[in-house]
Amino acid sequence: MQYMLLINESEDAYSGENAAQVMEETLAGHMKLIEKLAESGVEWSGNRLREAHTATTLRYSGQGEGALHDGPYAETHEELGGYYIVDAPDLDAAVEWARMIPIPGAGAIEIRPIWPNEE
C-alpha cells in the first residue's frame, strides 16, 4: 500500500536567528531518512517544494472557470513544504516513516493512503 506523507511545517522556523543551522539540521534529518529508505529497499519518492509564497492557486467557486490567485490554497500557520510517497504494509509502518521526517518547530505530517489504480 502506498502512503503520501504531507509535510506541513512553519516556514518561519527557517528564518529565525539561527536559520542556517536549522536548515542544515533539517536537511541532515531528511538525508538520514532517505538513506534509511534506500537501505530498506522500499519503493519511495519525494520532493521538497519551494516556499508557499511561490504558489499560485487556481480557485473554483463552484460555478464556471477557475480564477488564478497568488499564494497557497489555505492561509495557515503551517505550509505544505514537501512530501514523501512510501510503500508500506500498513498504517503503523507508514507512521513509522513519518516519524523520521524532521519538523523544525511546530507542524504536522498528514499520512494519506494513495488510492490504488485498480479500484
Binding site: Y3, P89, D90, L91, D92, A93, E96, I111, P113
Partner: peptide, 14 residues
C-alpha cells in the same frame, strides 16, 4: 480499511 490499519499486533516500539 482505507487507511490500512494492520490486522497484526503492534510492534513492540509502538
Amino acid at each position: 480499511r482505507g487507511a490500512g490499519i494492520a490486522f497484526d499486533l503492534p510492534q513492540r516500539r509502538d
